[in-house]
Design a protein around this nucleic acid. Structure first.
Lengths: 131, 131
DNA sequence: TTTCTTGCAAAACATTTGCAAATCG
DNA sequence: CGATTTGCAAATGTTTTGCAAGAAA
């Protein structure tokens, strides 16, 4: 059943970039990082690999509301916070108090599979610079 | 200070469509609705008007992770839930228990201005059809 | 007139797709 | 060999932009 992983050079390199990235890179960021490492894969291949890695459960795709998808090598259940000033994206590990999802199921009649929260605010460094 | 509202025919018609829409229309949906009402505005004008209405605080723009932005005439604080099967988007009025945002501020050091949660699941009708 | 708004077309951007060539098993 | 993956380029979908023409103040 569990078809085995086929990590080509492209996929492995991209996985490594996402995994070791602190800043939730977009596909374009990954292209840059590849170039820095002396690789040059086609855009199509990058998207293809990201999809493969996402489907394989090795990384997660984040759609945070800015135009481009970001990718996250951190698999544990968590949410994200975006700085409105500098655009930085950080992880949020505090989970919402439990009864919420149940309440929402009762309110909406949906069977909930998943939920993701995006916080927006001002990050510590931008606060320090007086904004 | 509060510059006064300039509602042209285009803006007013689009506002009316968003306000009276139950299904969080995208720009393309709005184009369709306009056509049904016998209007035909340029795409640029539709986006321009949506931006104006959003900035004026009359509607809200939703970026829920699917490709196109949706627009919502419901201004009260609420979240959204998307059916994974049929793509329908519904409102969620149950709010997360209060201490969460504070906890996140303490965890991240951010000053939080806003947060939006997107639930995914299966809507009542799709459940009924046995999925 | 001066300012704002529209319409249209082109550009920009992120992503997907089709297909031939290369690679893997 | 057959199956999968890559590279490239073209196509797609969404949104923005530039600019001339039109409407409003």
């Amino acid at each position: 059943m569990s078809s085995k992983l086929n990590l080509t050079v492209q996929r492995e390199t991209i996985y490594d970039i996402v995994k070791n990235s602190i800043n939730h890179p977009t596909a374009a960021d990954i292209m840059d990082a590849l170039r820095e490492r002396g690789h040059q894969f086609a855009y199509g291949t990058v998207y293809n690999s990201l999809k493969y890695l996402t489907d394989a459960g090795l990384i997660r795709e984040l759609k945070l509301g800015d135009s481009a998808s970001r990718y996250d090598g951190q698999l544990s259940d968590h949410n994200h916070i975006i700085c409105r000033v500098c655009g930085r994206v950080d992880e949020v590990f505090a989970t919402p108090p439990d009864p919420w999802a149940g309440t929402v199921e009762r309110e909406t009649g949906y069977k909930i599979q998943n939920h993701q929260t995006v916080f927006t605010g001002i990050c510590p460094s931008c606060q320090a610079e007086g904004r």
